[in-house]
């Protein structure tokens, strides 16, 4: 009975899919190839990342700046998808958008801030210059490397790897850096708790001094 139902379903699907396949055949010479699509996706993601970054540094409102940061994270997640590692892309969104940005929002709400960002001024010429230098610094390192190794490193199409490989790597060959990072996070958390509880006095109703 079940087998029969699934047979009927697949026959029906076949009837829908047949004209679409014909359409694919007919459009085939005009359709872009995967490589072209990858270039297009790369360009879109680069634009998203840059737009987010500029939004983050140019907006005078902290929440809008945070939104620019979210846009950048989305673009970076797209880059991970383009490199055939969906797991990293989703983790990027889960951790940076779902936790880090939300905590930034929390911090902004807990501090006194005026809505329009009136206190912020346009940066001086000197700091603009430093900013430009900082922007060009990665280029100064990466540029020669790219020129030196262009075409020499074989570029293969990335294949989707299971998360199992990632987990095995983190717990075997890279176990020491992995654990060290968690120790750093633990230290940061302990420090935050210490700072928050420094003036804590349980006798006075748990009020901070």
């Amino acid at each position: 009975m079940q087998q029969e139902a699934s047979n009927i379903a697949s026959t029906l699907l076949e009837y829908i899919a047949r004209p679409l396949r014909a359409l694919q055949e007919w459009l085939s010479p005009y359709l872009p190839g995967d490589e072209w699509a990858a270039y297009l996706a790369f360009a879109v993601y680069v634009l998203v990342i840059l737009a987010g970054g500029f939004g983050a540094i140019l907006s005078r409102n902290l929440i809008r700046a945070m939104l620019g940061l979210v846009l950048t994270f989305l673009g970076v997640a797209g880059m991970f998808l383009l490199l055939a590692s969906p797991f990293l892309a989703f983790m990027q969104l889960l951790i940076y958008v779902g936790a880090v940005c939300v905590l930034i929002f929390f911090a902004v709400m807990l501090t006194q801030n005026t809505d329009g960002g009136e206190e912020s001024r346009l940066p001086s010429l000197a700091s603009l210059g430093y900013g430009a230098l900082a922007f060009l610094a990665p280029l100064a390192v990466a540029g020669p490397l790219i020129v030196m190794y262009a075409g020499r490193v074989p570029v293969e199409t990335p294949q989707p790897e299971g998360t199992g490989l990632l987990g095995a790597g983190l717990l075997s060959s890279y176990v020491l850096p992995f654990e060290l990072i968690s120790i750093i996070l633990l230290v940061a958390m302990a420090g935050a708790v210490y700072l928050a509880f420094r003036g804590f006095n349980p006798k006075r109703g748990g009020q901070n001094q």
């Binding site: 969906p86 797991f87 989703f90 969104l93 779902g98 939300v102 998360t163």
Partner: peptide
């Protein structure tokens, strides 16, 4: 059929909160 479907759901659920 996403290999990491759970992570996808949890990742984009954060946008609702945002």
């Amino acid at each position: 059929k996403v290999p990491d479907g759970v992570v996808l759901i949890l990742a984009f659920a954060g946008f609702g909160l945002l």
